[in-house]
Design a protein around this nucleic acid. Structure first.
Lengths: 340, 340
DNA sequence: AAAACCTGTGCAAACGATTGCAGAGCATAT
DNA sequence: ATATGCTCTGCAATCGTTTGCACAGGTTTT
């Protein structure tokens, strides 16, 4: 990699001043300290010579890296990719670079990557892998690392986070179903150690109440992960239980896909024999067979907002933690209908 | 961000030697220079005290950052996400960090990000945004920046790249169709300034020849981008042309989806009235309606291999450029059948 | 006119590593 | 016994910035 040859000293010599003057002239914050004319000469020389500050020197001196680390469980999961994109969009505009790490949901890998990020002195972290109780997050907090959680939160509310309003989302779904006439609706929950899984399930029970439906433990199955395979297995258990129900709501779209799979192998047609609704409205959920009715989570915005909050906190370490809840939106498609 | 407090000097004082000795003891390459016992004491003290080298200092001195930049048109496009994941997997294992940049296919943004990466002295670049003639790539080449192209290449073969074998892929698709009995198959091509678009189209015409079908310019439409929308428009033009054909092959899965859309609005049923085949086998292409028969590109492997080649080149700058072609695999699903 | 204060600049010390060079100590060759 | 060589360690410079401090010169205050 060719190095950016020209340094502060070069410019200083060119203009005939001390490097420190050049430094001050080039830094907006200190520019006022130097005489207008000299500053002009310096900036002129700087871009004539193609000066590019050396980030290592800068960072060594200031301990700022203009870099943030992003942790996701799976880069290729359409429920996470948009978050990164959102983050990248706002961070790029502010001159930051984003480093990503894929953790595949393994705690050890999360820790390793957080450590790596810290060693590299990232200015902050956005974490989309947090569990409700997460020692790693606690650590970061006590270490004072600026961080914001995306799409998930911990039980500790002293940490910035941006999520969608999962419980009212879940509630809304139930109302939709109730309105269609469903009385017995099953639920396939996500992992309860994730706020997403936990709160969406909570939304389900609230929705039950709100619509005068009663909770039946036999109608809810839990998944160990937000995956198609887990969804399929849970659906299989549900079907095998012999219980009666006319709709299944899934804790997210991946699980919903798993349900599709199982229904299909059982010869049930989704949207007619049985309704199913997902959550997230991830890419292509409108292309499935049938198109999935689902709760749209504004993933891109969540990422962007997380980045903004992080930036705020980085620029001013005194900024108190802030938690924002985006409001999701129900997208009606073909996988729900009146009960058979 | 709390700084990693302990430095070489601290360890030096603790053990009672000069910082340079500590440096040597801790660096595997120079470890041999220091007496075994002392080295032992040093490493012992180092991890007792929790020493973490300061990357800025290291990089400032050595000009190495253990960082690579990755350029993709769209992080959220399922045809690119796996590439990043593949890259991350191998790079993480080698202690590198990956910085991503989303360029949305805008050249100016590509340039800006490459510049940013260079300023930050990344050790290398993997670029998935290259056009067949790409001044940006030329520049990088003459600057000597280690880089490897992923999933695309330029006409200049002196640049490392890893792609799937697009032309034989395209050819294979045609043979499949011919075997089913299709004689008139249309093609919806991708942008010809991208090697992917160009070579896949080339595969189409070779496949025509190989199966004794003749080329009919009226049966091919070109897209300006690998998008659903472009695919839909091209399909619309094709259908409107009044030409006769029994199958459409798309330059990639996104375009294929666009074709699905158009067929549906025209009341044609895909896989019966007309066959369509995609390319890439991106996530969920098995979930579409109907499941898409497509050419599987080993995206994850492509990313991983690109990372490996880059690493090679970084460690030894004399390594000559290397281009590898992965072999794709035809995945038969429901969108193709015998001609109506 | 002296005292006090600005304002703009330069000097030099960091930041935390790596590395060429010099030299101390000791073993081997002459 | 001297010369030669080898191995290990320390010294100090360096990478390119930022920034506290000193200070020169000019302005304002008393």
């Amino acid at each position: 990699m060719a190095s950016s040859r020209v340094t502060l000293r070069d410019i200083a010599e060119e203009v005939g001043v001390n490097p420190s003057t050049v430094s001050r002239a080039l830094n907006p914050k200190t520019r006022g300290m130097v005489t207008g004319e000299i500053a002009r000469q310096i900036t002129e020389a700087a871009d004539r010579m193609g000066y590019r500050p050396n980030p290592f020197a800068y960072s060594l001196r200031t301990n700022r890296s203009f870099t943030v680390g992003v942790l996701v469980p799976d880069l290729t999961n359409p429920a996470f990719a948009p978050i990164i994109k959102g983050i990248d969009n706002v961070l790029e505009a502010s001159g930051y670079s984003v480093m990503v790490a894929n953790t595949d949901n393994v705690a050890e890998r999360e820790r390793r990557n957080v450590d790596k990020f810290r060693e590299r002195h990232v200015d902050g972290l956005v974490i989309a892998t947090a569990r409700r109780h997460d020692p790693l997050i606690d650590e970061c907090r006590t270490e004072g690392t600026p961080l914001v959680l995306a799409v998930r939160k911990t039980t500790d509310s002293d940490i910035s986070s941006v999520v969608s309003d999962e419980v009212t989302g879940g509630e809304t779904i139930m109302s939709h179903l109730a309105q269609l006439g469903h009385r017995r609706v099953a639920y396939i929950a996500g992992p309860q150690e994730l706020s997403t899984g936990f709160e969406r399930h909570q939304g389900y029970v609230r929705g039950l109440n709100a619509n005068n439906l009663e909770y039946d433990a036999g109608l809810v199955e839990f998944c160990d992960a937000f995956t198609e395979e887990e969804g399929r297995r849970a659906a299989s258990r549900l079907l095998a239980s012999g219980r009666d129900f006319t709709a299944i709501v899934a804790a997210n779209d991946m699980i919903a896909i798993g349900i599709y799979d199982e229904l299909q192998t059982k010869g049930l047609v989704c949207g007619k024999d049985i309704s199913v609704v997902g959550y997230d409205d991830m890419l292509f959920s409108s292309k499935f067979d049938p198109p999935l009715t689902t709760m749209h989570s504004p993933l891109l915005d969540i990422g962007a907002e997380a980045a903004r909050i992080l930036l705020e906190r980085i620029e001013d370490p005194e900024t108190p933690p802030r938690s924002v809840k985006m409001t999701p939106e129900l997208i009606l498609r073909k996988s729900t209908g009146k009960p058979a």
